[in-house]
Design a protein around this nucleic acid. Structure first.
Ligand SMILES: [Mn+2]
Ligand SMILES: [Mn+2]
Ligand SMILES: [Mn+2]
Ligand SMILES: [Mn+2]
Lengths: 215, 215
DNA sequence: ATTTAAATTTAGACAAATCTAAAAATTATA
DNA sequence: TATAATTTTTAGATTTGTCTAAATTTAAAT
């Protein structure tokens, strides 16, 4: 399997995880910053290999084989992110791009040994679940901060947007995984939130609140 | 720089390290298990990028820029081999192929942090020197076991052949880096050696003795 | 000094992954 | 429902790295 094929599988996996319905050619093209015609070519190839169910003009979904392959790539990506943060002391906003490269290293033994070395973590530095060697995922039900109401309290357990910019913003506000967040006030006009994080109080926009997972 | 370009540079680096004179197209083709015509094509490209000094029909050598680039790849390869052996408990005969992949991961920060995490090792699991971030190498003078004479004693500090087969043979004979080796007898007929390793005595062919470095 | 052999390069082809531009199918709108 | 807009696919071109076969250059052997 080539790097490119792996990247397509991963993208389709992530897009189907969101909405569950078939993924469109354009959605893939947009996410991968490539052209729709390139996507079509690749879908034909992946279909030929029985990794996706593809019907012309009708969108695409992963086969069981394709889904497992995608999960193994996600597994590698997230384990490497753990390694970078836990062992090499990278911050959570620096690891994604390097993991994008490391996720393509081919060695089952390597990834399983890495898993053990890290103590078999179930979540990556952004709170995303790590599939095990069989592709099983422990789902933790979590809500967006934006769905919370006044006076509710929760723990930050993940982020939806994992861009470096957003993660740095959270660092600045001293919001990290494990932080306790209390909703002091929800402004009905713009759906912004007044929250308490630790001892500090701050106001966050709805856009921010829509990218923080709470449990 | 592409994977392929990096692999060519590394190969040229290793071939020049042996004999110091210009490397031939065929030597590169043989080592990389590719065709001479493919090598010629790549040499033109590397020459265009000022990574090699290339004169048609006359062989090739690395420029300073090319040599530094090659050393950085070797640095990455050997540091990852250390990681695999020291941290993930791989044996020294399993790590080369995985390191061949890992050496192409692009992140200076990653490799320098890995270096620190490993305690800035100066040698890899096969006794080969690890260039530092500036490309400097600590040369340890060492001799082949085959060049030793009767009654001499030394420590095994490296191997010339790093193939899995040879390394497994050494494991079987309980010869490892750090093992004390004493030459009991040198057979003049076939240049084989009777040696003592730890408490055991054994006979090794000249071919074996020509692939073990002693200090 | 020719001739022969070996090494190297060139020419042309191919597969993978991408692109642009044009055609076809689907979906939305009037 | 007919037409327009959007989405998707096809056709053809490009880049990278490879290959085979033929031509060229260099080295070796009469
Ligand atoms: Mn990531
Ligand atoms: Mn992540
Ligand atoms: Mn190696
Ligand atoms: Mn090595």
């Amino acid at each position: 399997m080539t790097f490119s094929e792996e990247n397509y599988l991963k993208t389709i996996y992530h897009l189907t995880a969101i909405s569950d319905i078939d993924v469109s050619t354009n959605a893939i093209a947009e996410k991968m910053e490539t052209k729709a015609s390139s996507v079509t070519d690749m879908l034909k190839k992946l279909s030929e290999k029985d990794l996706v169910n593809y019907i012309k003009y009708q969108g695409v979904s992963l086969t069981d084989k394709g889904k497992l392959a995608a999960k193994m790539i996600v597994r590698k990506h997230r384990l490497w992110e753990c390694f970078l943060v836990e062992k090499l002391d990278f911050s959570w906003d620096e690891v994604h791009d390097i993991a994008e490269q490391l996720e393509h290293i081919k060695s089952e033994k390597l990834i399983n040994k890495l898993d053990d070395f890290l103590g078999n973590p179930t979540e990556d530095p952004h709170g995303d679940p790590i599939p095990d060697a069989q592709g099983r995922i422990i789902k933790v039900e979590k809500q967006l901060l934006s769905e919370f109401d006044k006076n509710q309290i929760g723990i930050c357990v993940g982020v939806k947007d994992t861009s470096s910019d957003f993660l740095k913003y959270l660092d600045k506000q001293e919001i990290a995984l494990g932080s306790q967040i209390e909703i002091i006030e929800k402004e009905s006009f713009d759906s912004s939130f007044r929250i308490r994080v630790g001892s500090k109080e701050l106001t966050v926009s709805n856009k921010i609140a829509s990218n923080i997972y709470i449990k």
